[in-house]
Write a protein that binds this DNA or RNA. Structure first.
Length: 309
DNA sequence: CTATGTTTAATGCGGG
DNA sequence: CCCGCATTAAACATAG
């Protein structure tokens, strides 16, 4: 019998699917991308339920990452130590939980079936496609100052990068809530449409989520480097602002059906736009050297020990 | 070797 | 009841 304590609630299974949990984790960090291990950590840090049976749910989680198109892999730069890639959300997957339920999406996000304007013999579309890509990258550059490391064939689809954020957009849930000592949170409550009330309760009361102070200390589950993002971009520029674009992660989804033309794509773009890790790395050497992987897990560790009891 | 990824298959569950 | 999404298990590949 779970004794009536603070943990009673916390150990129940959170009302989120692995997909939403993962999305939360990813959205929670400024870079909008995380390595697998950090995703695990995020989840375990705030949802005690997932501190057990790790083998089971982590396998499921990995399955989800690979299986769902809404997650994309971002390669590590050579100067990024560690195993595995970073995981990010597909730029055009939008708010997958607009329907309000974090357990079940109304529709599985499927990458626009790779209409493969390239593979298909559609020269007209192809050029358009390429132009789109170029534009995307340019705007990315303009807003974030990011230099892209690797462009792969990747379909952004037509849907815009989602400008308006739902009150229940993952960002808003994750967004550090402005806590009041009482444990309540300010959110967009006041102006919340009636239909959202129920969920709003969720966002305010999260019995499953470790919030208080934990959020504040453990939230910056940032990369080993606190100064630079995965691409050596100063975090400050990417940081904060849910509106910041997802750091324009450059996906590397190993889109199965060949991608021969990618090389061609590169060729058509200004060199600085299509910098691949292998090719001339524009990254100043000092950037890489600045921080080693001296990750600091101390905080969360102590927190966990607290929660265990 | 372990962590990370990819895939397939079975099963559960909810909504239309 | 069927379809589609989610969960779980498990085999297998690969990278560090």
């Amino acid at each position: 019998m779970p004794r009536p304590g603070r943990n009673t609630y916390s150990e129940q299974k959170p009302p989120y699917s692995y997909i939403s949990l993962t999305a939360m984790a990813i959205q929670s960090c400024p870079e909008k991308m995380l390595p697998l291990s950090e995703i695990y950590k995020f989840i375990m840090d705030r949802f005690p339920y997932y501190r057990e049976n790790t083998q089971r749910w982590q396998n499921s989680l990995r399955h989800n990452l690979s299986f769902n198109d809404c997650f994309i892999k971002i390669p590590r730069r050579p100067d990024q130590p560690g195993k595995g890639s970073f995981w990010a959300l597909h730029p055009s997957c939008g708010d997958m939980f607009e329907n309000g339920s974090f357990l079940r999406r109304r529709k599985r996000f499927k990458v626009p079936a790779t209409p493969d304007p390239v593979t298909q013999n559609k020269p007209a579309d192809t050029t358009h496609y390429l132009q789109q890509q170029a534009k995307l990258r340019l705007s990315a550059l303009a807003t974030t100052g990011t230099h892209l490391s690797q462009m792969n064939n990747y379909n952004f689809g037509v849907s815009p990068p989602t400008t308006f954020k739902h009150p229940f957009a993952i960002e808003n849930i994750i967004a550090r809530d402005y806590k009041i000592p009482g444990g309540l949170t300010f959110s967009t409550m006041q102006s919340m449409p009636a239909g959202y009330q129920i969920h709003n309760q969720l966002t305010t009361a999260w019995p499953h989520m470790y919030n208080s102070s934990v959020m504040d200390t453990a939230a910056p589950i940032s990369m080993p480097s606190a100064e630079y993002s995965a691409y050596g971009v100063p975090l400050k520029s990417l940081c904060h602002g849910a509106q910041t674009l997802p750091a324009i992660p450059v996906p590397i989804k190993a889109t199965p059906p060949s991608v021969p033309r990618l090389a061609a794509l590169h060729a058509h773009l200004p060199a600085f736009l299509s910098v691949s890790p292998q090719s001339t790395s524009p990254t100043p050497p000092h950037v890489a050297a600045t921080n080693s992987s001296s990750t600091t897990h101390s905080m969360s560790a102590s927190l966990q020990s607290v929660a265990v009891h």
